[in-house]
């Protein structure tokens, strides 16, 4: 149980899917035009992740290796269709119409398939569910943060409540897709900068997370130069 809890916590911060693993950037950039949209997208993904992780870790032992990816996709698609119908029925219409096509696209979100392949197929159901919830919450956290920042920079409001009331002209770059790239980049840079400073202060060597690590990337052959 303690282990399962640890699995959950690591998804929220240490292995945050957006800020550390850099997975699922398409929904991250496309749906975060406001904080509420980001939060709704994050929660929908969390439900899919927890459900698909549970089922996949249960059936992983009997799925033939050759067709495991299509089988996983079918499982994920089932959960996404269910979430889509439930959201259409019970979520506020404004949220559903804003997220629109991005809900079905959770099927091809790398985080969901990535966790199925890398974690759920190798671990027991309980740990897998907690991993799914943790990853989902990490995703929601990152999306809400990015959404709130974009909403604030573009209109001066957060969760549709205007904080700076004299802000009358929208700054459209932040709410459009290019602004999303810029702001996500700034967040990533800031996170790495502070993590590095903390590591140096503690007298440790800073090892960037695998996704952002210069050494694990083979493009500029940094390994060979050293």
């Amino acid at each position: 149980m303690k282990k399962a809890f640890k699995d959950m916590l690591k998804g929220i911060w240490k292995e945050n899917p957006v800020l550390v693993l850099l997975l699922g950037t398409c929904p991250t950039l496309a749906t975060t035009s406001s904080a509420a949209n980001g939060l709704a997208m994050g929660l929908a993904t969390t439900c899919v992740l927890a459900g698909s992780n549970l089922v996949i870790s249960c059936i992983a032992g009997i799925v033939p290796k050759k067709i495991r990816i299509p089988v996983y996709i079918v499982v994920i698609a089932t959960f996404v269709s269910a979430v889509d119908m439930l959201m259409k029925a019970y979520s506020p219409p404004a949220i559903y119409s804003a997220l629109g096509i991005f809900i079905p696209l959770i099927v091809v979100n790398c985080i969901v398939l990535g966790r199925a392949e890398a974690f759920a197929s190798k671990n027991n159901p309980v740990r897998s569910v907690f991993d799914g919830i943790g990853m989902g919450l990490g995703f929601s956290l990152a999306l809400t943060m990015l959404g709130a920042l974009r909403e604030f920079i573009s209109t001066g409001s957060v969760f549709e409540v205007k904080i700076i009331t004299c802000w009358t002209t929208d700054f459209l770059l932040a709410s459009a897709a290019p602004g999303a790239f810029v702001i996500l980049g700034v967040i990533l840079a800031a996170k790495n900068h502070f993590a590095r400073r903390a590591a140096i202060k503690a007298g440790k060597l800073y090892v960037p997370p695998a996704g952002l690590d210069c050494h694990s990337c083979q493009i500029c052959k940094l390994n060979e130069k050293e």
């Binding site: 032992g61 009997i62 799925v63 033939p64 290796k65 050759k66 067709i67 299509p70 089988v71 079918v74 499982v75 698609a77 089932t78």
Partner: peptide, 22 residues
């Protein structure tokens, strides 16, 4: 055995059953 199975009809049947359950 099923995990290592590579015969096409078995794989096809497995996928079909998955889709049906879904």
């Amino acid at each position: 055995k099923l995990r290592e199975n590579e015969s096409v009809p078995v794989l096809g049947a497995f996928l079909g059953i998955t889709a049906l359950v879904s």
